[in-house]
Nucleic acid binder design. Structure first.
Lengths: 217, 217
DNA sequence: CCATGTGAATGCGTTCACAGCC
DNA sequence: GGCTGTGAACGCATTCACATGG
């Protein structure tokens, strides 16, 4: 079995979720195109990498398709994760309830500020940062949502990875150097990227009165 | 002036920020490789798309390089943005202080829950959701950070875009259908993607393709 | 020598076009 | 007929190798 192309993995990850709230039993590649925006032949090509009999005359069997994707991508395993850094962003994710639904289990929150641990109320157990090695090992935590300030991100990531964490979502604007898998999510870069995309169309003007009348969607 | 390759834009966006906290005057492509993780020839190729004399014997001139990137990508314009949906995630970003530093101005927060508007304290002016068209037009808001529940994301995005918003960061797990530029950030998909990458220790089917080969810490 | 810059080669994902099957 | 599945063609970004400049 060969490695999947990187972009294919990315699309299949999304497709798997998309199939979650898909009430029908069958779905065609054309319908997936409509819902997700990828060309139908791209969808078919992606799916063709998966093993098994997934189609039946008029489309793919939703259950079987989702199962095949999850199986192939290793998404059937329930992974334990933690949130590190319980500022506004970290505690937002600490209280996010969408993890369990999709096979993740949030089992710990960490912060170096003891006061903060006492103030925060959460269903999830909270620990001081110095307990990261112990707790990560004890619960076999594999994934971490890293919400600490940029200055500490590299050091904290080192501790996490040493303790056994294999994947990180990094919200700080630093390029982590680590053997773990990393996904960077920095909102300012996202804004900058959007800025680049929308270009310098009609700027300068402070839109005094009339406002440009936009055509409907 | 030709369009830049998509991946180049993405790297230059990050490079521009990386140069922000770069105290030196000169930087070589090899040093950028060390800090950002891209091969030095990739860096040079990316930079070669930019106009102007950016190098001088022993590396690039940091100021000039950053200026050239920002100019080319349209990052010199200060864009106004807003946060829509002031739940935990939305209010976390509402209080994030990193926007101004990098040329963005957060000028409004919106939520449909009037109570919430009264409870939240923020330096940023808050408005009820029904005022989105008015406020977006009045302040010429171009970018929106969309933190509303999935069920409302499409409808709210329609209103924003109709009012003049040109780019959206979407935190909800839905594929928005819109003419605006969109960046999707859904944390569960990020976790799933990491899951796929780290596999099950026994399972090397996904064979991390080169990608992030970092040298040891 | 150092490091940049760039045409040319390579490799990889996308797109195409059509064969196969329900 | 409609839809999937896939080898083959294509196009684009990456990578290479070497010419150029301080």
């Amino acid at each position: 079995m060969h490695a999947l192309p990187e972009p294919t993995v990315e699309r299949l990850v999304q497709l798997s979720r998309l199939l979650l709230d898909c009430p029908e039993n069958q779905i065609t590649s054309a319908e997936i195109e409509r819902r997700a925006g990828w060309a139908s032949h791209t969808v078919r090509k992606d799916i063709s990498y998966l093993p098994g009999e997934l189609s039946s005359g008029l489309g793919y069997k939703v259950q079987a398709l989702k199962a095949a994707i999850d199986e192939r991508l290793g998404l059937t395993i329930q992974r334990r994760c933690c949130v590190v850094g319980l500022g506004r962003l970290g505690s937002a994710y600490l209280n996010f309830s969408g993890f369990e639904l999709e096979g993740f289990k949030l089992v710990a929150g960490f912060d170096s500020n003891i006061n903060r641990l006492e103030i925060l109320q959460s269903r999830i157990p909270l620990y001081p940062a110095f307990k990261i090695p112990e707790v990560v090992q004890r619960f076999a935590i594999e994934l971490a949502i890293l919400c600490v300030p940029a200055a500490q991100a590299q050091a904290v990531s080192d501790i996490l990875v040493k303790a056994g964490v294999k994947g990180l979502i990094n919200f700080a604007p630093v390029a982590l150097s680590t053997k773990a898998a990393v996904r960077n999510v920095y909102i300012v870069d996202e804004l900058r990227y959007l800025s680049a995309r929308i270009g310098n169309d009609a700027d300068e003007t402070l839109a005094l009165n009339g406002e440009q009348t936009k055509e409907p969607l």
